[in-house]
Design a protein around this nucleic acid. Structure first.
Lengths: 160, 160
DNA sequence: TTAGATGCAAACGATTTGCGCGGAA
DNA sequence: TTCCGCGCAAATCGTTTGCATCTAA
């Protein structure tokens, strides 16, 4: 089961690409310092619609040179704590991160190659959060929904 | 963020507890051998409604003695490949497993202590699988839906 | 008898942590 | 000048793998 990570994710028609300035403003407001690494990471996350792993970040050209893994982990933890990125589990070994964009997104993940595509549809779970909270007593409920399947590319390979 | 794993999961009113015999029959049909470890693992999974991690399995009284972690991992991989258990990511470091019961289940996970509760409600994502397949070209689509929140116990602690 | 399971030990990959230094505010 | 963030190195944890041995079928 090789994981290629083409990231064919189509972009969302609703979420406009947030300018870097605004992201930085949000970071400052959250008490983060305007670091070289922060800048680079935001740039990458901004142009990526699919969730990105730390390994992928750390091998990105612009980041590769000046990047210690530990620092990267710490930065993304900070960003997540401040609510600026969302951490997502995709059944890969490694966690993945996305910017928190205008509205909630769900994903389809290929079981064969790990490719992730963004879903551009009304999320059916969001309206249930309240119901879940009511029925279980859990507070502050949000959710994570992923679909898993075999992407067209891998489907084709299998048929040969 | 300590993870306690009380597993307060309430049981599902619909899924009857499957007799061990039937489980074993299914395993045999899948080509698995009736091993000591297999028996023990099935027993534990059967009485647990919440997903269980391999660590939890390996520290269960009945399993602890005769259990090498590598063997346990391999067994659960086999069981998953054969479609007998479901592997679930819960934002914990470790994967969790449940028996594939009568019908699909979703879960609420406590962000503080990691406690997992079973949700006994109609799953809103199941009917979307076809739609996702159609709109993305992914085949053989299923899904995983988890809600995250703060469980009553942890909510109380925070208020003190 | 034989393919499938196991135990042990070692490798691996993702993530975390401690500590002393450097840079943004 | 003061913390926050950084780099480096080592530790930890979950998981995988190779290999010789064992055992259910």
């Amino acid at each position: 089961m090789a994981r290629n990570h083409h990231h064919s994710a189509n972009s969302c028609k609703i979420c406009a690409e947030e300018p870097l300035d605004e992201l930085l403003a949000a970071c400052r407001a959250a008490g983060l310092r305007r670091t070289h690494l922060l800048l680079r990471v935001l740039e990458v996350l901004q142009r990526q619609t699919a969730p990105v792993s730390i390994r992928e970040l750390s091998t990105t050209r612009s980041i590769r040179d000046d990047c210690d893994p530990a620092t990267l982990y710490r930065l993304l933890q900070r960003l997540e704590t401040k609510g600026l990125v969302r951490r997502i589990g995709l059944h890969e070994r490694a966690a993945h991160y996305t910017l928190r964009r205008g509205h909630h997104h769900d994903y389809v993940v290929c079981r064969e190659c790990g490719d992730v595509a963004l879903l551009d549809m009304a999320c059916p779970a969001q309206k249930l959060e309240r119901e879940v909270s009511r029925s279980t007593g859990f507070k502050n409920v949000d959710h994570e929904l992923q679909f898993y399947g075999v992407c067209p590319k891998c489907g084709k390979k299998a048929r040969n």
